[in-house]
Simulated assay, not measured.
Amino acid sequence: MKITREFYERDAVTVARDLLGLTLVHKTMEGITKGIIVETEAYMGTIDAAAHSYKSNPSGRTNVQYGEGGHAYIYLIYGMYYCMNIVTNQVEVPEVVLLRALEPVEGIELMKKRRNTEKILNLCSGPGKLCAAMGIDKENYGMDLCQNQLYLEQEAGYKQSEMIASKRINIDYAGEAKDYLWRFTIKDNKYVSVKVK
Rank of each mutant, 00 (worst) to 15 (best):
L19V: 12
L19W: 11
L20F: 11
L20G: 07
G21K: 06
G21D: 12
G21F: 01
G21Q: 04
G21P: 02
G21R: 07
L22S: 11
L22T: 15
L22K: 15
T23F: 14
T23W: 04
T23K: 13
L24D: 03
L24R: 06
L24V: 12
L24E: 01
L24A: 09
L24C: 08
V25T: 13
V25H: 05
V25W: 02
V25F: 08
V25K: 02
H26S: 09
H26Y: 06
H26C: 08
K27Q: 08
K27D: 03
K27P: 00
K27A: 08
K27Y: 09
K27S: 05
K27N: 10
T28D: 09
T28H: 06
T28C: 11
T28R: 09
M29S: 05
M29D: 14
M29Q: 15
M29C: 10
M29K: 14
M29G: 09
M29W: 10
E30A: 14
E30H: 09
E30S: 07
E30K: 13
E30I: 12
E30G: 13
E30V: 12
G31C: 07
G31H: 12
G31M: 11
I32N: 15
I32F: 06
I32W: 11
I32Y: 13
I32V: 15
I32A: 13
I32C: 14
T33C: 11
T33P: 07
T33N: 06
T33W: 02
T33G: 07
T33M: 03
T33Y: 04
T33R: 07
T33H: 03
K34H: 05
K34D: 03
G35V: 02
G35N: 10
G35Q: 03
G35H: 01
G35A: 10
G35K: 02
I36K: 03
I36F: 07
I36R: 03
I36M: 11
I36T: 04
I37H: 13
I37F: 12
I37C: 11
V38Y: 01
V38Q: 04
V38C: 12
V38E: 03
V38P: 04
E39G: 03
E39K: 05
E39I: 00
E39F: 05
E39N: 07
E39C: 06
T40A: 01
T40L: 05
T40E: 04
T40P: 00
T40Q: 02
T40D: 01
T40V: 10
E41R: 01
E41T: 05
E41C: 04
A42E: 00
A42S: 06
Y43P: 01
Y43S: 01
Y43D: 00
Y43C: 01
Y43I: 02
M44L: 15
M44W: 06
M44V: 09
M44G: 04
M44S: 08
M44H: 04
G45Y: 02
G45M: 07
G45A: 13
G45C: 10
G45R: 04
G45L: 09
G45V: 01
T46A: 13
T46S: 15
T46M: 14
T46D: 13
T46F: 10
T46R: 14
T46P: 12
I47R: 10
I47V: 13
I47D: 03
I47T: 10
D48G: 02
D48M: 05
D48N: 05
D48A: 05
D48R: 02
A49S: 10
A49C: 11
A49G: 11
A49D: 08
A49E: 07
A49T: 04
A50P: 02
A50G: 08
A51Q: 00
A51P: 00
A51M: 00
A51W: 00
